[in-house]
Design a protein around this nucleic acid. Structure first.
Lengths: 215, 215
DNA sequence: TAGATTGTTAATCGATTAACAATC
DNA sequence: TAGATTGTTAATCGATTAACAATC
C-alpha cells in the first residue's frame, strides 16, 4: 500500500477491476501473472499497480479475488458517488446522458444544460435538460464535483469558467480545445481527434512501410 | 522534418491544427512560442513537434500560418480519407454515427452494424444500420481501414476478430475491455472508466489533502 | 525442500524540459 | 547591430521493465 500513485496506474485500475469482475467463473484466488496474461500487460507492472492499492497478495497463492476487487473499489473511492452535470445536450451530450453505464462507476449525473430552447425541458433517461442560465446556481447549491463539457469548442471556455466559479473541482472535456483553469482544478481531455490521428497515421504508415509485411 | 515521430507528438498535432484554424483573425505568421502560450504548453515542446512536420519556421518571424496548417494536414494524411465502420448501434454508437464532426478529419463512416432487429435497417445521418452478419464481407469488399467498436465488453473480442480477419488495420475500441490483436493491427482504447477514475480520484484527494488550500 | 509468486531495488526507455548555438 | 525566434544537443523526469531477494 503506497503513498502516492501514478496517473498511469490510476488509469489501469478500472481495467483490472473490470477484468476481475468479468471472469467467467469466479476463482477464489488470482495471481498478478494471470491478470497480466489475461490483459496482455507486463506482469511486474500489474504487480506494482496492485501493490499500490492492496496488501493481500501472498506468494504462491496470489490475491483473494473478492478482496482484491474490494481493495481496488475502495481505493478508487467507489463507496461514495461523485455528482456531475453535462453541459451541452447535442448528440454526444445526450448519448452520455442516457448511457447508463456510469452508474456502475458511482458517477451520478444530475442533469444536462443547453442553450437550445428546443432541447430545454426534455428528459433523457430520467435526466432533465435545463437552461444554461441555471448552471452556476445549481452546481453551487448541489455541490457538483465533475463538469462534463460537450459543447462546441468556441463555447467551452465560457462554460468551463462558470463550472469552476461554482466550485466544480474536475472537468471532463470532450470539446476539441484547450481549457484554462486554476491549478486546483483537474482537466481530463477526451480528445477524439488525437486518437483518430494515431489510428489514421498507423494506416498510412503501414501502407508505405515495406517492413510491415504487406505487399 | 524528422524520420519517426512519437505517439505523444502525433496526438498533439490535431490540437495545434484546431488551434491554428480557430484563431479569431488569421495572422500571416505565428511563432511556436505564441502557440504554446495559447494552449498552455511548453514552447520547446511545440517547436519540436512542429519541426517534425514542417521546415518552414524562420527565426524572428515564426511560421506562415497557412503553410503550417497545410504541413500538419499533409502529415496527418488529411488529403486522403480513411473509411470506417461502427460496430454496435447503441447510444454511443448512434451518437458517433450522427456526430458529423468526423468528416472534418477525413474519416468516412460507411455504415453501422448491430444484432438488434429493431435497429437494423434504420438510418442515422444518412448512414444505414446493417446486420452484423454482413460485417466481414462488407469490410473486405470496401477495404475498410478503421473499425469502431461500441458493443458491450463481452462481445468486443468477437467483433474485433471479424474486423481483423476482414483486413481492418486499426481498431478504435470504446468497449471497456482489452482486445487481443495481431501485431500489425493498432488498437486505440477510448477508456471512459480510466478517465473517470482520474477525475474522481482528484476530487477525493483534494478533499483529504490540507495542502490543497480547501478548508 | 522446490517452485511459484510476491514485492523491491536497479536499469532502461521514452518524453519533456533546459541550455545554447544558429539565423533572420 | 540587437533581439526574437528557430532547431539541436544535453539534462531531467516519469514510467516501464529487468533482476533479485523474501516468502509461502
Amino acid at each position: 500500500m503506497n503513498e502516492s500513485i501514478s496517473k498511469q496506474t490510476l488509469r489501469r485500475l478500472p481495467v483490472y477491476l473490470h477484468y476481475l469482475k468479468s471472469l467467467p467463473e469466479h476463482p477464489c484466488n488470482i495471481s498478478a501473472t494471470a491478470i497480466a496474461q489475461g490483459l496482455g500487460l507486463n506482469d511486474v507492472q500489474v504487480r506494482k499497480d496492485l501493490a499500490a492499492v492492496s496488501c493481500g497478495g501472498r506468494p504462491k497463492v496470489g490475491y483473494v479475488c473478492e478482496e482484491l476487487i474490494a481493495d481496488i473499489e475502495c481505493f478508487l473511492g467507489f463507496d461514495d458517488a461523485d455528482s456531475a452535470v453535462i453541459v451541452g445536450a447535442g448528440n454526444l451530450g445526450r448519448a452520455l446522458l442516457s448511457y447508463g453505464g456510469f452508474e456502475k462507476y458511482r458517477l451520478n449525473i444530475l442533469a444536462a444544460f443547453d442553450v437550445d430552447d428546443a432541447m430545454i425541458g426534455r428528459t433523457y433517461a430520467g435526466k432533465r435538460i435545463l437552461p444554461l442560465e441555471r448552471l452556476g446556481n445549481l452546481c453551487g447549491r448541489l455541490n457538483v464535483g465533475i463538469g462534463i463539457i460537450t459543447v462546441p469548442a468556441q463555447a467551452a471556455q465560457e462554460v468551463c469558467d462558470i463550472l469552476v466559479a461554482s466550485g466544480v473541482g474536475a472537468i471532463w472535456n470532450f470539446a476539441p480545445t484547450h481549457l484554462r483553469v486554476p491549478s486546483h482544478v483537474l482537466v481530463q481531455n477526451e480528445n477524439m481527434a488525437a486518437s483518430l490521428a494515431v489510428l489514421s497515421k498507423h494506416l498510412s504508415v503501414k501502407l508505405l512501410d515495406p517492413a510491415s509485411g504487406l505487399l
